[in-house]
Write a protein that binds this DNA or RNA. Structure first.
Lengths: 298, 298
DNA sequence: CGACATCCATGCCATGAGGTTATAGATCCA
DNA sequence: TGGATCTATAACCTCATGGCATGGATGTCG
């Protein structure tokens, strides 16, 4: 009668992947653990949910019936969970602000200061997200509002106000042959290995590799990093170069890494994003207004 | 992110009861266990869901928000769970038939035999329920169809076809002063202690105490029992008398217990019940048809 | 035909979550 | 002040969960 939602997630994972082994990888558990859990679910319901074969796991008729219902249940729980968490933040007068790396750079402090003035008693809690989480936690409800570089994957489901644009420069190892050039035509970087964001970040990754501005040439990826420090190390160690907002030269200065202007790539734009559910939330809207009033290109 | 539905049930119980102690009783767990679980849920969400006081537990604002959503989630899971179980039964060609005590008495075997003829390959699995479960498992989806005495609590949400009526007699200790009388006017039993069903059975309990046919006189309860054997023992030991269908004289004969006709109480009627969700289920409908054709008053 | 790859299943072990009982702490009431 | 009525904490036990190693079935390829 009682189930853990984890068990249901396991079930849908197996149903979708079609094999225990692959589902186990996706869920970051061992395959025997999954075997046991699925068996338990079957015992609980008193049904065979899958037919086993060399090829993997295929849903039975009752299994299909279950698989049709479960995602909706999980989504329902996810919604109320998210709602409760944001209610919690509201209760303690905390606005959770996600950001990615240096998102709003110098403007950030002004925005936060303005917000604190407008909402005395409230606190803006800044949460840095890794690049593997390109909405900085908005998508999973762990923040109320986010400062991001647009475009980013998942943008469609969210509200975004663009704050300002900023040039994209390139970060190079200090010893690089182009380290003294200024500005560098992007064309000359086409064949360089690049330091990229992880695959999860999808479109966002491509945009920072300027995949659309290479005239169809393929990208060479020299390293994949998830965080600013790794990113800087990878560049300093010569694994590759990378595009970065101009402000990175100030926020992520490091021996062994130089930043140079680039010509021939489009600007990056910084935006503030929130979920449609918060369109009427006065605190979120206040924060957005503070962003629009106090964010200026650096 | 993951929760056990048990945790959610615990939460709603505390929210509804208003104190941990009472909720713990209702859930059949100890109060410290509940304390821990509620704390865990709060930790999980990062919210205080209740404010504690000497008087008990009161929902906070986030708690109320959660309490508003959770019952729907639980109901959703309950539906799919039930669906899966009945899919399982269908898959293995088992019709689960609940019944209470001697519900359809002699007719039962005829019904089952007719069903087996009509649906070769299928098996009717008979499940006796205790009196604390007056729908014999229909309400919680553990059976597909039930043979019951009407009226019973929860009848509104179910479909019922009445099969036949039967007189109510009284079961008396053999040594009882009225044990030789025949028939006994019900009026003479008004002041006798009665052996009753547990409180959970609600309306059903009252009906077997003939609470409506006592001219407003209060009922004296001499013992509470949950099962036929306990019931028989209670009567044989002289804790009280009890109304019973006439067929009980054949099905529940026991030394020390005598059955006598009673005048002045209404008949009992036997029905077959199923859930509206199964209105279109051919197997359930076949069973119902078998009941209508083969059930005759004994 | 035998070695290998690819599935799922099983056995054993360590860990942790959830339960129980006993008891402490707080607060109200007579 | 003593008792009644809440919740919280401590100590302990049990069992489910997950990890690792390994077995068994089956298909594939040299």
């Amino acid at each position: 009668m009682d189930v853990d939602t984890r068990l249901l997630r396991y079930f849908t994972a197996v149903a979708e992947e079609g094999t225990l082994t692959r589902a186990a990888e996706r869920l970051f558990v061992s395959q025997p653990a999954l075997t046991k859990q699925i068996k338990q679910l079957e015992a609980l319901l008193g049904v065979r949910l899958f037919t086993r074969s060399r090829a993997g796991m295929t849903l039975t008729e009752p299994g299909r019936a279950l698989a049709a219902r479960v995602p909706e249940l999980l989504a329902g729980w996810d919604r109320t969970w998210r709602e409760a968490r944001s209610a919690a933040a509201r209760e303690s007068r905390v606005l959770r602000v996600g950001f990615l790396a240096s998102a709003a750079n110098e403007a950030t402090q002004d925005i936060v200061a303005a917000f604190t003035r407008r909402r005395p008693g409230w606190r803006a809690e800044m949460r840095q997200a890794s690049w593997g989480n390109p909405t900085a936690g908005l998508a999973d409800g762990s923040v109320d509002v986010a400062l991001l570089r647009v475009p980013f994957p998942g943008q469609r489901e969210l509200r975004v106000e663009v704050l300002f644009a900023e040039e994209r420069w390139v970060a190079l190892p200090a010893s690089h042959r182009l380290a003294e050039r200024e500005p560098i035509p992007f064309r000359e970087l086409w064949d360089e290995p690049f330091v990229a964001a992880p695959a999860e970040s999808g479109r966002w990754r491509d945009w920072w590799l300027a995949a659309d501005e290479r005239d169809g040439r393929p990208v060479r990826v020299g390293a994949v990093t998830d965080q600013p420090d790794e990113w800087l190390s990878a560049i300093a160690n010569g694994y590759g170069v990378a595009l970065a907002p101009a402000s990175a030269a100030r926020f992520y200065a490091r021996p062994g890494v130089v930043y140079r202007p680039v010509s021939g790539v489009s600007d990056t734009r910084v935006g503030v994003a929130w979920t449609p559910a918060d369109d009427a939330d006065p605190v979120v809207q206040d924060f957005v207004r503070c962003c629009l009033e106090h964010a200026t290109p650096s």
